[in-house]
Amino acid sequence: MLEINTCGLYCAAGGFHIDPWKPAPRAVITHAHSDHACPGSEAYLCAAASRQLVAARVGEDARIETMEYGETRDLGGVRLSLHPAGHILGSCQARLERNGEVWVVSGDYKVQPDTTCPAFEPLRCHVFVTESTFGLPIYRWPPQAEVFGEIDAWWRANREAGRTSVLLVYPLGKAQRVLAGIDCSAGPVAARASVERFNALYRQAGIALPGTRPPAGVPPGALVLAPPWTIPPAWFRRLGPVSTGMVSGWMRIRGTRRRRSLDRGFVLSDHADWPGLLQAIEATGAERVRVTHGYRYPLVRWLRERGLDAQAFETRYTAEQDETGSEDVEEIS
């Protein structure tokens, strides 16, 4: 049903790619992170809730068709439907059915709850194509309420000490989940432009988020959301005394936090942790599992030792382990 060609994951029968990394005639997009939504394809198909975000990536004038979650469409004899993946707003799993055989491509997903997008929907299938970003048993997420509580406490302590809290978050998905989860009554919240751009799109989509302002001139003690990539030191200096934190699954490892000289690391990810991956795989009932980006080989070996037909799929998605510790890599906007 699916193969890897030069553009990416390809369904020959249906004549479409899923998340191609090069321009393709027809691209089904699981979600709007830049390593999954590449510009230049002739036509795009994505979940309705993802439309504005995908357009922000691939261009407003691109041909983008949408489907509601659960709606089906016939493409060359392949029945395609999209289902919530719980990763970010509008993210989906792609379900493909042909002659009674069902494949599900997970895209990126998490099984933890998230108030800014519908929950991951377990789907029965014969073949499950899963991501493996955090495919090692050391990756186990604490309950998110606990993590939001830690962020609140850190921010309050900084505010009392007259410091500004700079929180590094991935601008699409993570930033909004954090905003919706923490207690924003503690003071003003600012967001760098690259974060605010997606806040605005979330608000347009009807997701309730606390108000945010630009960082210029924020009083000490404010919370500032910034992307995880390098920030000009001059920008930091303008904020006065700061404490830096980062929200990412990679913060589970002390080394990734320490390499970046961050004060605090908060363990919260939009990807499934190890128990989440195993739980999702089991829920599909699939006997064949294809593992894409992340810790492919450990997960494949683990599944094989448990009698599943597991194989690695060589893809070019970049949400893999990243030396800089950022969860996803995005162009600097």
Binding site: I253, G255, Y295, Y297, P298, R301
Partner: peptide, 20 residues
């Protein structure tokens, strides 16, 4: 073997054990 994979990702024995 999985302990070995994890250790490679963490780079610290005490921490690998604590995380696992």
């Amino acid at each position: 073997w999985m302990f070995g994979e994890c250790y490679q990702a963490v780079g610290d024995l005490a921490e690998t054990i604590a995380l696992l």
